[in-house]
C-alpha cells in the first residue's frame, strides 16, 4: 500500500511493533518475519537477523530494570531505502564494537551481535546513550 508521509515522501510500506518483554518479542518474531517478507522480500532474512540481534541487545544490555520498559521496532520502506529504528526506555548501554573474527575473540561466548548487524545493513547508529538504534538498508539497486 503506497502512501505519503508528512514530508510528502512516497512510502511503500511500514510496520510497527512494541514488546514489553523478551517473551512478547518471542511471540512477535514470526509476525516480524512475515511483515519483512511483504515489505522487503529481497532482504527479509538479513533484516530479520539484524532486528533480532538489536532487540536481544536491548533486552540483555540496555534494559536493567524490566519493570515498565518497552522495546519499539519501527520499519519504514521507501523506494530507495529501508529504515529500522529500535528504541527502548531502559538505562541504555555503551555499544562495544568488537571484531568477533579476531583470533583473540573468536572463542568468546558473546560479543558477535553488533558485528552481525553491521554485516547485514548499510549503516548502523546508536544514539540516546544506546537506547536508540537506527539501521538503514540501501535499496537503490533493488528490483522493487
Amino acid at each position: 500500500m503506497a502512501f505519503k508521509n508528512k514530508e510528502g515522501l512516497l512510502l511503500i510500506d511500514k510496520f510497527n511493533c512494541d514488546c514489553a518483554s523478551l517473551e512478547e518479542f518471542r511471540l512477535a518474531r514470526e509476525a516480524i518475519r512475515e511483515n519483512l517478507n511483504k515489505i522487503c522480500p529481497e532482504y527479509s532474512m538479513q533484516l530479520f537477523v539484524a532486528i533480532n540481534e538489536a532487540v536481544n541487545n536491548a533486552f540483555f544490555h540496555g534494559i536493567n530494570d524490566h519493570k515498565g520498559t518497552q522495546v519499539t521496532i519501527d520499519i519504514i520502506r521507501n523506494k530507495q531505502d529501508l529504515c529500522i529504528e529500535i528504541k527502548h526506555n531502559g538505562e541504555g548501554f555503551t555499544p562495544e564494537y568488537i571484531d568477533c573474527t579476531a583470533t583473540s575473540e573468536v572463542y568468546n561466548d558473546s560479543g558477535r551481535g553488533i558485528d552481525i548487524i553491521r554485516h547485514y545493513v548499510d549503516s548502523l547508529e546508536f544514539s540516546a546513550c544506546g537506547r536508540e538504534v537506527t539501521m538503514h538498508k540501501n535499496l537503490k539497486n533493488s528490483s522493487m
Partner: peptide
C-alpha cells in the same frame, strides 16, 4: 534455518 549470536555463543561454550 536460523541461529542468533546467543546460539553461536552456546555452541562455542559447549565446544570449550
Amino acid at each position: 534455518d536460523y541461529i542468533d549470536s546467543s546460539g553461536l555463543g552456546a555452541l562455542v561454550a559447549l565446544q570449550k
